[in-house]
């Protein structure tokens, strides 16, 4: 007999957090950056969060596509779960970024292409959740359209540092990391991505349970009616 779902999820969550803890140790052991010093360490959590924000938006758009054009209920659930994770990791990007910027640029926020486009992508994910919740009868299709429009913003976030004159570090910075930093960075990225997948599957299980509950409630009502 397989272990109950909640136990398996607990184990998966614990594994992901252990990996994250390991990444933290590696980050602590990594040498400080020459010009910025300790503040540069924010980078190890900031970049994976940003990557997950983009991944969430992309997966949400993919799920929405499957829902809109194929009527896939699973696609709809994936889109919702991914959008929620997008809001979570977007928040992490938007908090860790300014904390780094305060030390590096002297100001928490600059109106600059990458910051603006990331903020917008996050706002669209929030809008997705709002639409899901309060959008009325067409809420799910409306939200799906929103996710697809939001997908347009993903390349804008990624390429913004190249298209516009920008003070945000370039994407190529990753390949110029020192040997001690590279390992910590990739480990952190792997831990974050693993955590993302675990969270997505937990969130999907919750959504599925919700759908099943609705089904069973109808069934129960029918059974009670038949009896009486």
């Amino acid at each position: 007999m397989p272990a109950p779902k909640s136990t398996r999820f607990l184990a998966a969550c614990a594994a992901a957090f252990a990996l994250l803890l390991l990444a933290c140790l590696a980050i602590g052991a990594a040498p400080p950056e020459a010009t910025m010093g300790v503040v540069q360490k924010i980078f190890y959590f900031h970049v994976p969060s940003a990557w997950l924000l983009m991944l969430s938006a992309l997966v949400s758009a993919g799920g929405s596509l499957a829902y809109l054009f194929r009527g896939s209920e699973r696609g709809d659930r994936v889109a919702l779960a991914a959008a929620e994770l997008g809001v979570l990791f977007g928040l992490c990007v938007l908090v860790s970024g300014p904390l780094w910027a305060k030390a590096a640029w002297g100001a928490y926020w600059q109106w600059e292409a990458r910051l603006t486009s990331s903020l917008l992508l996050w706002l669209m994910m929030v809008a997705y959740l709002l639409a899901r919740r309060y959008g009325g009868p067409a809420a799910r299709r409306l939200a799906a359209a929103l996710a697809l429009f939001a997908a347009v913003d993903i390349p804008l976030v990624y390429f913004s540092v190249r298209f516009f004159r920008s003070i945000h570090p370039q994407t190529t910075v990753v390949s110029t990391l020192g040997p001690g930093m590279r390992g910590a960075f990739w480990l952190s990225l792997a831990a974050f991505t693993g955590l993302w997948f675990v969270l997505l599957s937990v969130r999907l299980a919750a959504e599925k349970a919700q759908a099943e509950i609705v089904e069973l409630e109808i069934l129960l009502e029918q059974a009670e009616e038949e009896k009486s």
Binding site: K5, S6, F9, L10, C13, C24, V38, V39, K41, I42, F45, H46, S49, L88, L91, C92, V95, S96, L99, W100, K102, A103, L195, L199, V202, R203, A205, A206, A209
Partner: peptide, 25 residues
């Protein structure tokens, strides 16, 4: 700043896991 950033992200992720876990249960 480093402590704040790491603290916030840990807290946010833990908080989310807690909420989703409770909801699933």
């Amino acid at each position: 700043q480093v402590a704040l950033a790491y603290g916030f992200i840990w807290l946010a992720v833990f908080g989310y896991v807690f909420l989703v876990g409770r909801r699933l249960a």
